[in-house]
Design a protein around this nucleic acid. Structure first.
Lengths: 240, 240
DNA sequence: GCATGCCGACTTCCATGCAAGTTGGCGAAT
DNA sequence: ATTCGCCAACTTGCATGGAAGTCGGCATGC
């Protein structure tokens, strides 16, 4: 029941910030996606469409449609007549995700390095700025700012490679794993190595050395995976 | 308008083969996907949810929900209050798709070649059988059978690499481009080269030479792209 | 005590109605 | 002849109600 009386208490989305320009389905989609990403919904199952609709102040229909989209993206599962469930990720899922992302970001770095001057220049401008931000965050020991810069670096890589479908594919699995990354963020050692590897990738792109840029970007994600997976196994995190 | 009077004429799905075990949404989803894949719907825009619902013998709701899924997969676009549109693919879209598929199938071949003996053996059994079928199809000059074997080879590659998300990502873009591939199938020269390259990939996997298997699989798709794209440009196919 | 069958509360599924928005064409004014 | 404005027909967005399915708990039989 979850005390529907006090709807504004601390629920999934406080009566919806709503982004009033969009449709209700869009609002529901964003609110639910954010809620899953930020671990407002734990990985286990949660509630019914009715309950969510109540909390978001709308009817069941737009919630239902938003859930279809989220299911398509692998964030939730709709059990035929039993409610909805937030997908949990096993270590094997994380392996899949890192493998896929390593491959695609490798290709993205390759494509940028091999691209024409205009593409490369614009990408490098963005990457340099992000690298500077990351260095500043490291100097301040600001872990959250570091994580944000890290996200931006990887996103810039795939969004500027000239292949929107590749960027979308990466985005989908990154959404799936966002929650897990946040959980493990503070468990890891100080991520000084990341900046170095980002700089190396950037340098290879600047030189136009496509194979090297690709290999470095791929290796970077593989390092992260090799650091993360044993940690998960050790902590016995079967699903998160 | 498309003469809604003669509903049984030769429409999208002849009163639905229906797969009675599933839900209406699932039926609508499959019927529409098949219709788009098989070019029953031309790339331009088509009709309204109402019309489709009529043809499939159901209400608007399940059709609407199926369309949401198809939109998420990039097959159709729902224009806010104006109806639905089947997505057309530009040559640049085809470039994106081939680039993405080359990358992912390359990685899949690599993973299989580097995988443990059991994985490799099972994959090789499947690939060998498919290669035999393709050879037989070529000997019979059966282009349709060749295309089917080609599809099966590439699907086997990604479905047996041990990464379901990779397989799904490939499947999504292959669905998008299926129609275009069918259109161009008969324009190309006799695809004797494909079999050779498939055999080379298979051999590299058998030897456990992962880098080579990956490079060959990647090159195979790049060859197909280099053969297809100029053809599209020449024929002035801006969208299909 | 333990297994079994039934029932009620809960869920999604789907049909339908109304509201709101867009478009194309017709008529009137210039 | 041309342009502008309005209106009717069409579209999806969303709410709601009934139908069908699933599960947990309770009563009943052993």
């Amino acid at each position: 029941m979850t005390t529907p009386g006090r709807s504004g208490a601390g629920g999934v989305a406080p009566a919806a910030p709503a982004e009033s320009g969009a449709s209700l389905v869009e609002n529901a989609y964003r609110a639910l996606k954010t809620a899953v990403r930020d671990n407002v919904f734990p990985p286990g199952y949660q509630g019914s469409e009715q309950e969510i609709a109540l909390r978001l102040g709308m009817s069941r229909t737009p919630v239902h449609e938003a859930l279809i989209r989220l299911q398509e993206e692998g964030l939730v599962r709709v059990l035929p007549k039993r409610g909805i469930q937030v997908c949990a990720l096993s270590p094997d899922d994380m392996r899949e995700i890192y493998d896929l992302v390593a491959t695609l970001e490798g290709r993205a770095a390759e494509a940028i390095a091999a691209g024409d001057a205009a593409l490369r220049t614009r990408a490098l401008d963005a990457l340099d700025a992000i690298n500077a931000d990351m260095r500043a965050a490291l100097d301040r020991d600001d872990l959250d700012a570091w994580a944000q810069a890290d996200d931006r670096f990887h996103r810039a890589l795939v969004e500027r490679c000239g292949n929107r479908r590749l960027a979308r594919a990466v985005g989908t699995v990154m959404d799936q794993s966002h929650r897990a990354r946040m959980v493990t963020l503070r468990l890891r050692v100080k991520p000084i190595r990341s900046l170095k590897e980002h700089l190396a990738v950037t340098a290879a792109i600047r030189k136009g050395d496509a194979p090297r840029a690709g290999a470095l970007a791929r290796a970077h994600r593989e390092h992260a995976r090799d650091e993360l997976l044993p940690l998960l196994e050790t902590l016995g995190m079967r699903h998160l």
